[in-house]
Design a binder for these strands. Structure first.
Lengths: 132, 132
DNA sequence: GCAAAAGTCAAGTACCCACTTTAGTATTGG
DNA sequence: CCAATACTAAAGTGGGTACTTGACTTTTGC
């Protein structure tokens, strides 16, 4: 239903550039015009405009033009979406860790555990750093 | 103190690539060898190795080699760090929104408010989409 | 011991994209 | 009206990097 639902692909690609992250950083402390964003940056104004376009396409920032000045501001929803993407991977992974740990810590053979093979990769040894 | 503290720069750059995110996705559901990671991908094994190297340098994944097989797994800490970066920008921005809203909703002139200009960008009008 | 499997290393190519320059359009203040 | 200001649009250039290929090393199954 949202006007511009950006794929997390675009979001992460947008955040993949240092200059763009600097812009997001600056926008974190308030809305700014394109020239204001450009001022601290060591690149041309045109370049900043291009970055803003990428950020806008990603949904991370929104802009509105009034007169001759375009004002940019962050869109928290997009930030949140990216955050959730990361959180999900992490949760999935940590969930696995928890289950593994549960298995390891189950000194007494627990009946509740399914007879199905854990499908978790067997960790045979504490394993050294690189086997030379 | 951590052995490999990756800059969030490297983390976001790593996540900026689609193939790399696909790898992270797959690793989300369990550790995998390089060949396993390569199987569903439409690229050569060597390319996957390179991606894994980038991910490892970013701190997002760790690997250990046993015999001839290198096993990769996610590092939740790195994920969490990126998550926090986003959360902080968002919090900052939403904090601003809250303060603004507080000002707007202050129907009765609050004495507690400083006489200093709010340094918050003035929002004069509900403003239309683009002024043609 | 040999061959297949699983990576590793080094070049090389091709494409993407960050950035520049140049030229142009609205908008605003005096 | 004139000159700044604040972009906008288009084209071009260079560097980075994703990906390939081919040769080589190590491990493992038979």
């Amino acid at each position: 239903m949202h006007a511009h639902t950006a794929s997390s692909d675009q979001v992460f690609h947008a955040l993949g550039d240092g200059t763009r992250r600097a812009i997001v950083l600056q926008l974190g402390s308030g809305p700014a015009s394109v020239s204001e964003l450009a001022r601290p940056l060591p690149i041309s104004l045109a370049a900043v405009v291009q970055h803003v376009q990428v950020l806008e396409a990603s949904g991370l920032v929104a802009t509105h033009k009034q007169g001759r000045v375009r004002t940019c501001h962050l869109v928290p929803d997009a930030l949140l979406e990216a955050e959730r993407w990361l959180a999900q991977r992490r949760a999935l992974w940590e969930g696995r860790l928890d289950r593994l740990e549960a298995l390891v810590h189950a000194r007494s053979p627990v009946d509740g555990a399914r007879a199905t093979a854990p499908s978790i990769a067997p960790i045979d040894a504490p394993c050294e750093e690189e086997t030379p």
